[in-house]
């Protein structure tokens, strides 16, 4: 009962507190939710379906570039462009997924192929003048225009990412209880057995891939509108792929709250290590790598898994 109250309090704080926060903590909070959102999106394919993608940047970049190009070249509002980007990304996800799953790629081989696809998109974007190549694309955000996903202040952006995160949470929760959700878990645990039991593994995995890609692409549009600049390295590079999956791993892949918890833990950890170890280049990332190794070794189910085990032991 106390747990529900705590959760309620947290939600209330997230909704009501930000207008009173100074800009800098608000900035951090937006960052946390952004990575929580990406983690939630990744989690559908990586955590629930158990297909570990190292190349989600492909979908992120497709989302960012689609909405931005439609905005810059055709004047289409990024709110709509966002959806277009999501659909395109889902399509690419289906293409990538079909090739990979049809040819039986599993485990690390699947991970490597997703990495390769993201890198290929990056190299193409770098060399394609029509999408701006390495010069990148600047999103005009000097004049506020809410209908065009441009706000004068940080606060509206916060509520957008909060809404996206809440939506992703809800979606994950609902999904976990549908047939597709159970099918995904079955495939994750033992694909061959699931197939034998009549589950359409290919269909399930492809659905997860499309959904995960769609959601990730929306995050790409948010990034473009918030940071006002995109280029091939930022959007298609391995950095965003890794940063997107870490919250899910640390928090607990395959759980609803895992990515959220992971993001809320990881960001302060990285801020703290940066603050403590200022002036020593790389010491914070070194610690970060150590933390990652420790979490994988001792909390393989992530924080949620660890909390559950503790609670079970407590009786």
């Amino acid at each position: 009962m106390g747990e529900k109250a705590l959760a309620g309090l947290a939600v209330a704080a997230l909704v009501a507190a930000p207008p009173f926060l100074p800009k800098y903590p608000l900035e951090i909070l937006i960052s946390v939710l952004f990575f929580a959102y990406l983690g939630l999106a990744w989690n559908i394919l990586g955590g629930y379906a158990g297909q570990f993608s190292f190349g989600h940047a492909a979908f992120f970049g497709i989302g960012a570039y689609t909405s931005t190009l439609l905005f810059l070249r055709a004047g289409l509002s990024p709110w709509l462009g966002m959806l277009a980007g999501g659909v395109l990304a889902a399509g690419f996800g289906l293409f990538e997924g079909y090739l990979s799953f049809r040819y039986g790629l599993r485990g690390p081989y699947f991970s490597l192929v997703t990495l390769a696809f993201a890198e290929m998109l990056r190299v193409v974007a770098v060399n394609l003048k029509v999408v701006g190549a390495s010069i990148g694309l600047v999103i005009p955000t000097s004049a506020a225009a809410p209908a065009l996903f441009v706000f004068a202040h940080k606060l509206p952006y916060y509520y957008v990412i909060l809404a996206l995160t809440a939506g992703a949470l809800l979606l994950t929760r609902v999904l976990a209880r549908t047939r597709l959700g159970y099918a995904l878990v079955a495939v994750r645990e033992n694909e061959d057995a699931a197939e034998a039991a009549g589950v359409n593994a290919l269909g399930a995995k492809l659905s997860a891939m499309a959904l995960s890609a769609f959601l990730t692409a929306l995050g790409g549009t948010f990034y473009a509108q918030y940071f006002a600049y995109i280029d091939p390295t930022i959007t298609f590079g391995p950095g965003i792929s890794i940063q997107g999956l870490l919250p899910a791993i640390v928090g607990g892949a395959g759980t609803v709250l895992g990515p959220l918890l992971g993001a809320f833990v990881l960001t302060p950890v990285s801020e703290l290590t940066r603050a403590l170890l200022r002036g020593r280049a790389g010491a914070d990332i070194m610690l970060y790598g150590l933390v990652l190794m420790l979490v994988i070794s001792f909390l393989p189910q992530g924080l949620i898994g660890w909390l559950r085990t503790r609670r079970m032991r407590a009786g």
Partner: peptide
Amino acid sequence: VELGKSEAQRLIDQGVVALIGPFSSLVAFS
């Protein structure tokens, strides 16, 4: 980029009269 943005914000909140930087054009855009 994200760090550049948050660091800039922190300094602005602390009342700097001007900001010098940021070296990388990517960070500057944001």
